[in-house]
Simulated scan of single mutants.
Amino acid sequence: MTGAVPAVGVAELPDDAVLLDVRENDEWAAGHAPDAQHLPMSELTARLGELPDADPLYVICRSGGRSARVVAYLGQQGHSVVNVDGGMQAWQAAGRPIVGEVPGADPTVV
C-alpha cells in the first residue's frame, strides 16, 4: 500500500481490534473473521451512521485494495481508520479463524 493510507499487516493487528469488512455480501457469506462487522463498500456512504465506534477502526477486504480506498475516504471524513494489508487473503494465509454463512460449505475467502 502507499504511505498515504495508514496500514498494518494481519500479524500486527491488536487482539482487541475492531474489524470492518467492506467486501460484498457473497464474499462475506463465503468466509469472514468471526468478530468482524460487515458494511459493503458499495453501501458505505449511505450507511455511515452504522460504522462501529472504534478508535481506530481496522478496515479489511479481500486483498487490501478496496479497504485502502475506504480508509482514505473515512480518514478524510475525520475517522480514525487503518487498512489491513493483504486483507482476508492474508488473514486466511496466517491461519486466523474464518466463519462462513453458507450452510454445508467450508468457510473460505473468495
Rank of each mutant, 00 (worst) to 15 (best):
T2H: 14
T2P: 13
G3F: 09
G3Y: 11
A4H: 12
A4W: 07
A4D: 15
P6D: 00
P6A: 01
P6N: 01
P6M: 01
P6R: 07
A7E: 14
G9N: 04
E12I: 12
E12N: 08
P14G: 10
P14T: 15
P14A: 15
D16P: 11
V18M: 10
V18K: 15
V18R: 15
L19P: 09
L19K: 13
L20W: 02
R23G: 06
E24D: 12
E24I: 05
D26W: 14
D26C: 05
D26T: 12
W28R: 02
A29E: 05
A30G: 00
A30V: 00
A33L: 11
P34Y: 14
P34H: 12
H38S: 09
H38F: 03
H38R: 07
H38C: 05
L39S: 04
L39A: 01
P40F: 00
P40D: 00
M41P: 02
M41V: 01
S42N: 07
S42Y: 02
E43R: 11
E43G: 11
E43D: 15
T45I: 14
A46R: 14
A46E: 14
R47W: 05
R47M: 01
R47Y: 04
L48C: 06
G49E: 03
E50K: 06
E50N: 02
E50F: 03
L51I: 03
P52W: 03
D53N: 14
A54N: 12
A54K: 05
A54F: 11
A54I: 11
P56M: 07
L57E: 01
L57G: 02
Y58Q: 06
V59H: 08
I60L: 08
I60Y: 02
C61E: 00
C61P: 03
R62P: 01
S63L: 04
S63I: 06
G65A: 13
S67C: 13
S67I: 10
A68M: 12
A68I: 09
A68V: 05
A68N: 09
R69C: 05
V70Y: 10
V71Y: 03
A72G: 04
A72C: 06
A72Y: 00
G75K: 11
G75D: 07
Q77L: 15
G78P: 06
G78L: 03
H79S: 02
H79P: 04
H79N: 02
S80V: 08
V81I: 11
V82K: 07
V82N: 07
N83M: 08
N83C: 08
N83H: 10
D85V: 14
G87W: 09
M88W: 05
M88H: 06
M88S: 00
M88K: 02
Q89G: 06
Q89W: 10
Q89A: 10
A90C: 05
A90Q: 04
A90N: 04
W91D: 00
W91G: 01
W91M: 01
Q92T: 13
Q92F: 06
A93G: 08
A93L: 13
A93M: 11
A94P: 09
A94F: 13
A94E: 05
G95K: 11
R96C: 10
R96W: 05
P97I: 13
I98V: 15
I98K: 04
I98G: 03
V99P: 04
V99W: 13
G100P: 04
G100E: 03
E101R: 13
V102C: 01
P103F: 09
P103C: 03
G104H: 10
A105Y: 14
D106K: 14
P107Q: 07
T108F: 13
T108D: 07
V109M: 05
V110W: 12
V110M: 10
V110Q: 08
